[in-house]
């Protein structure tokens, strides 16, 4: 399976990405490719720049240098409209779910639908799409609740539904299981897998959870000191003799 994924089309390619905040050199020449239908796991210590990298990828942060190609377009050179169009094809699951506190679950899901009008046009009735997205994550009954009334696991599911509602081709997960108990984390993982199979999406999963990486990855990259320190399948990396690599699997 993994060999033939490597032969598929490349949809994201990052070359020599650098980003600093003052004297804090977070990324020092990071390289990465994502193939169609692939689940790429990126592991790194807390504060190693995983979130910064993924935010550069979607244009929330601007890179200092390097190139980021997403579906043939160079992020960073795009007009706002083109960037918005690309963003409809990329779902982003934020680290802390990032649900809008002041809106109900339904309004949370409608927000991207009503604003990214290019994909589905201007919708009169968003109910079918909202309900479908909620059913995908098994929370159709929560449609009228406020985020404050949801548990951590439910919030993560709703956030997932919100990223899925535009039916993106690529999904970026920023620590999807962090802060959840092991059982809920497992449920989220199963959900991620089923979504992957149902919609045939490609994903980048940022995590420091070894179980998560084992279950979901086709390929892994270890981010150490701002570069892609090691790369390979879970089995290859977990049996590596390099102490820096081994530190991740203890």
């Amino acid at each position: 399976m993994s060999t033939n994924i490597q032969e598929r089309k490349i949809i994201i390619e990052i070359k020599d990405l650098k980003k600093s905040y003052g004297d804090n050199h977070v990324l020092n020449g990071f390289n990465m490719t994502l193939h169609e239908g692939e689940n790429l796991v990126i592991m790194g210590k807390s504060g190693s720049g995983k979130s910064v990298m993924i935010k550069c990828l979607i244009g929330l942060e601007t890179a200092d240098s390097g190139s980021i190609m997403v579906m043939g377009e160079q992020i960073g050179e795009l007009s706002r409209t083109t960037l918005d169009e690309i963003r409809t094809e990329i779902g982003f699951l934020f680290q802390g779910s990032a649900l809008y506190d002041s809106m109900t679950v339904r309004e949370n899901l409608e927000f991207p639908l009503r604003r990214h009008t290019k994909k589905f046009g201007v919708l009169k009735d968003t109910t079918p799409l909202v309900m479908q997205a909620l059913e995908n994550v098994g929370l159709a009954h929560a449609v009228n609740l406020m985020p404050a009334e949801l548990s951590g696991g439910m919030k993560r599911r709703i956030a997932l539904a919100r990223t899925l509602i535009l039916q993106p081709k690529i999904i970026l997960y920023d620590e999807p299981t962090t802060g959840l108990d092991p059982i809920t984390a497992k449920e989220i993982l199963i959900l991620m897998k089923s979504i992957q199979e149902k919609y045939n999406t490609s994903s980048i999963i940022i995590t420091h959870d070894v179980d998560c990486a084992r279950v979901i990855s086709n390929r892994m990259i270890l981010l150490v000191e701002g570069i892609n320190y090691a790369e390979g399948t879970f089995d290859e990396l977990s049996t590596s003799t390099d102490p820096k690599v081994q530190a991740f699997f203890k």
Binding site: K55, L60, F94, L99, D101, F111
Partner: peptide
């Protein structure tokens, strides 16, 4: 406080990627 907590919990970033 409202915008601050929206910033800290990445809600502002989420808006940005939602085409707003």
């Amino acid at each position: 406080a409202e915008l601050g907590s929206m910033r800290v919990t990445e809600q502002i970033d989420a808006m940005e990627v939602s085409g707003t």
